[in-house]
Design a protein around this nucleic acid. Sequence first.
DNA 1: ACTGTCACTATCAATTTGATAGTATGTTAC
DNA 2: GTAACATACTATCAAATTGATAGTGACAGT
Lengths: 147, 147
Amino acid sequence: MNSKINAKNSCPIARSLDFLGDAWSILILRDAHAGLTRFEQFRKRLGIAPTILTKRLATLTEEGILEKRVYSEHPPRDEYVLTTAGKDFLPVLFMIGDWGRKYRGDDKLVRFLDAETGTEIKPVVLDEVTGAKIGTRPIQIVEPGDE
Amino acid sequence: MNSKINAKNSCPIARSLDFLGDAWSILILRDAHAGLTRFEQFRKRLGIAPTILTKRLATLTEEGILEKRVYSEHPPRDEYVLTTAGKDFLPVLFMIGDWGRKYRGDDKLVRFLDAETGTEIKPVVLDEVTGAKIGTRPIQIVEPGDE
DNA sequence: ACTGTCACTATCAATTTGATAGTATGTTAC
DNA sequence: GTAACATACTATCAAATTGATAGTGACAGT
């Protein structure tokens, strides 16, 4: 898919697809949120070929989702940390996970707990304005320019 | 990426990646939620090659996200409608869109309004149990088997 | 008969993927 | 001091996927 089409699309979903729309990128982001930062950590955890990992990390860095940082001059070592944009991707990951748990789940899934209460997190998407759950009320789509 | 790896993974995010992790699939789902159902509708709206569209629709159908339905015997015509699993994907689409609006947005984006109130929808992910916004509190990851 | 619509399939060049091996720059153990 | 190890990659290349273009089959309308 030509990413230049998406970048100029008026749809906010399409705009996100330059890096999303690739399974490895999503898994890298997941692991970055779990605390991984280094090339070898990602490679081992994901079982991804180094060629592909290099490409994905480069894309995510260009897209401003990860940031490359030198953590050792001698020997020269780099790590990849989440930017604010990357951290803000967490809700998307949670919703993807929630869908997977519901429709691809069985008893052997990882669980995410609230560290303070120890309770399992049940993510829901609400409209902050009306307080309604997404999907329970009709939606109106407005193209830019139309009033 | 080998999809069989993801299907047996203990991570709910990985389990979702058999169809997600492809930009076209996400766009097809977006348009299905906007009311499109037919091959030619998707093809024209997305500018996708028919070979690719056939493959994506087949995958989404196999995965139980879309359902193929004959809407005319003479002439023979099919359409693709969202299953419950497909409809439940809407919150994910909203969060992807929300991220895109924040980090890839400008003034020329489509807006989503609550049809009843006419207000713009501002999606947030909350933990239904604690009521806290996702990302504001530390998370504990529990592997299956570990107590 | 001819043109049009719809839901595709066939063909095939170009791109992307990803497995494997190797490299550059160092540190550590003996 | 040299052999092994660690990290973050790059080079190579076969295989798979992508996607552009053209065509097909079943019908409808005029």
